[in-house]
């Protein structure tokens, strides 16, 4: 009989390289944590951990959505501007409603609904242009990135939109409060991450995203509604941007043209550090969460220590990002 063997030029079966591929980001995260604990005793304090997790939550929530977009072979550069625009819109609407509805829960709920609605709509717009109009995702979202950034500058008249002071009292706990000592942004991030992980691994949607990202022709020939799935990834991302904004606004109660600058790149970096392939076809949400934590911890560590000139912070970040990606590269001798 014929014994089937692997084709030449490919590693035979899973080798040791695969494990590193899986563990790379976790190893990097552990190294950072150990280094942090050695450098500063406050690093592992409850307060510091809470700080890092809570402020990573915005990027984290967005990055979970970005994981799906990238896995399905797309990209979204507009999320940072979108967050700024939604934050501005939300503040404007809530401030307008305070005189008639009072500075209470109801106004905040309306504000949240506005944020979610605006996120859905913005995501849908991106997705529609990309799938139905067949414009390159890079171009579409580069365009909407500029549009939202300008819109928020315009809304704020070049300055800063500030939330009504009465509302801050009521809304503040959404960022600063929590449940059983865990602050809300962390809880929301965790829930979004778990749902994302389930969505990616356990649902047809996640499988379709990977298939489309690998080869959209195969997906189309397999009766997958490629446009619909792609559109849904952008809509989902928009919704998550809305959720992230809901968590962001109560922190400083303001939005300006500098809100959310470069969030898109941080989110994309977190996704890639986590092991999702930039060209699509493979994604993992838990990796993205690890990537977000790595990015957050680098910042934190650099602030907690005086080892490097602050001018070099960006360089350190860059080196760690590249290292994390090298660590998890698959071991393919013949490319």
């Amino acid at each position: 009989m014929t014994t089937q063997v692997t084709r030449p030029g490919q590693p035979a079966g899973p080798g040791h390289g695969i494990n590193l591929h899986v563990l790379g980001p976790i190893v990097a995260l552990l190294v950072l944590i150990v280094a942090g604990a050695l450098m500063n005793p406050n690093f592992l304090s409850y307060a510091n951990i809470t700080n890092v997790l809570a402020r990573s939550a915005f990027i984290g929530i967005i990055a979970v959505g970005m994981t799906f977009v990238i896995t399905a072979g797309g990209l979204d550069l507009s999320v940072g501007s979108m967050a700024a625009f939604i934050a501005g819109l939300m503040i404007l609407v809530m401030n307008l409603l305070v005189p008639s509805m009072g500075a209470g829960i109801s106004v905040i709920l309306v504000g949240m609904a506005v944020a979610l609605g605006a996120g859905l709509l913005a995501g849908f717009l991106n997705g529609f242009l990309i799938t139905n109009m067949r414009i390159e995702a890079f171009i579409v979202t580069l365009g909407t990135m500029g549009i939202y950034r300008s819109l928020v500058t315009w809304l704020a008249d070049g300055g800063t939109l500030s939330l009504d002071f009465g509302l801050r009292e009521a809304y503040g706990p959404v960022y600063y409060g929590g449940l059983l000592g865990v602050s809300w942004p962390i809880i929301v991030f965790l829930v979004v991450a778990i749902l994302g992980e389930i969505g990616m691994r356990k649902t047809a949607f996640g499988r379709y995203c990977a298939a489309i990202g690998s080869n959209d022709q195969v997906a189309r020939y397999s009766s997958v509604d490629v446009n619909r799935i792609r559109l849904l990834t952008y809509v989902g991302l928009g919704l998550l941007v809305g959720i992230a904004t809901i968590m962001y606004v109560p922190r400083l109660g303001s939005a300006s043209s500098s809100t959310g600058v470069l969030w898109e790149l941080e989110a994309i970096a977190a996704v890639i550090i986590g092991g999702t392939m930039l060209k699509g076809g493979f994604g993992r949400v838990w990796g993205t969460v690890v990537g977000v934590l790595i990015l957050g911890l680098i910042d934190n560590l650099l602030n907690l220590t005086d080892w490097v000139s602050p001018y070099l912070n960006g360089a350190i970040q860059g080196v760690i990002i590249v290292l994390a990606v090298i660590l998890q590269r698959e071991n393919r001798p013949e490319g």
Partner: peptide, 23 residues
């Protein structure tokens, strides 16, 4: 005690100050 760049930005300043307070 320390100087860090907050880049004339509210969010960056928030982050840097949190870390100053931890440190």
């Amino acid at each position: 005690l320390g100087m860090e760049h907050g880049n004339w930005n509210r969010d960056d300043a928030f982050t840097v100050m949190q870390d100053f307070l931890s440190k």
